[in-house]
């Protein structure tokens, strides 16, 4: 809903994921699970109920053996910049677009669990908590004190590790700085990525790595035609991967779920 409250802010956080670098290892997902206090159920094979804020989609070029290729599309919350689909539909204002940072947040203690936002989001970035959060005996010790686990019956999603922004800001404040340096605030997924495929930073800072990367010729966003203006960009030099990011009339769907 940025058109309603575009304010003079120097910050707008975004992410660039280089799909040519991504090997689909899932370190981003695990790092996110650990950072954001996700519980794990004994059976997580029902992927439509398995909560992973950073989900890695596997796509194939659809060619038969031996010309097959697979690629991976890690998908955090897109933090849509234009008329954020989930924000306007929430009946209780449990989700919010922060005009100062561009981050779309979710207030877990406010959410009534109606799941209207789940339906509104075309990216499947929103997850409903179908179960009570439980940790096996002793494993609760690994809970990150900066993040509240979510109770059953509410919707949750990637927050761009918003708590890390608060920490970075606190640190900068103590050091007498107002602005954060590029790389001072990064998400857990970007921090973990072994191939360095994920870059995170302030898109409004022209010197930041993300601001430069989004100008790359291979840059694209998922489902751009819908007009949601995601703040997560992808890079690829392979046309079939770029094409798998959006629907195109008359095109044979090259990318299929693998």
């Amino acid at each position: 809903m940025s058109e309603h409250h575009e304010v003079a802010s120097k910050e707008k956080y975004g992410m660039v994921i280089d799909l040519d670098k991504c090997t689909g290892c899932g370190a981003c997902t695990v790092s996110c699970l650990s950072e954001n206090n996700h519980y794990v159920r004994e059976d997580e094979s029902d992927k439509l109920r398995s909560v992973a804020w950073m989900k890695v989609y596997k796509v194939t070029n659809g060619e038969p053996f031996p010309n097959t290729k697979v690629a991976f599309i890690p998908r955090p919350c897109m933090h849509c910049d234009h008329h954020t689909p989930c924000v306007s539909v929430c009946p209780v204002m449990a989700t919010d677009y922060n005009p100062l940072t561009g981050i779309v947040s979710q207030i877990y203690t406010r959410c009534i669990g109606c799941r209207y936002c789940v339906g509104a989001c075309p990216y499947h970035a929103r997850y409903f908590n179908w179960w009570d959060p439980v940790w096996p005996e002793g494993m609760h010790k690994l809970l990150n004190p900066d993040m509240s686990p979510r109770m059953r019956g509410v919707v949750e999603k990637c927050s761009f590790c918003n708590h890390r922004l608060q920490k970075a800001k606190d640190k900068a404040y103590v050091e007498g700085r107002r602005d954060l340096k590029d790389g001072e605030y990064v998400t857990a997924c970007a921090e973990a990525c072994p191939t360095r495929a994920i870059t995170f930073g302030n898109m409004k800072d022209p010197e930041s790595a993300v601001a430069k990367l989004i100008k790359s010729p291979g840059a694209f966003r998922l489902l751009e035609k819908l007009g949601t203006q995601p703040k997560v960009y992808y890079l690829s030099n392979e046309s079939w991967i770029r094409e798998s990011g959006d629907n195109a009339l008359g095109r044979k769907k090259t990318a299929r779920p693998a």
Binding site: V92, R110, V155
Partner: peptide
């Protein structure tokens, strides 16, 4: 149908005027 029936009244207390719901 709502995940948090005990918070059902939030709909009246924290209404989002933009939401059709």
């Amino acid at each position: 149908d709502i995940g948090q029936p005990l918070r059902g009244w939030f709909g009246y207390w924290f209404p989002n005027i933009h939401s059709m719901l």
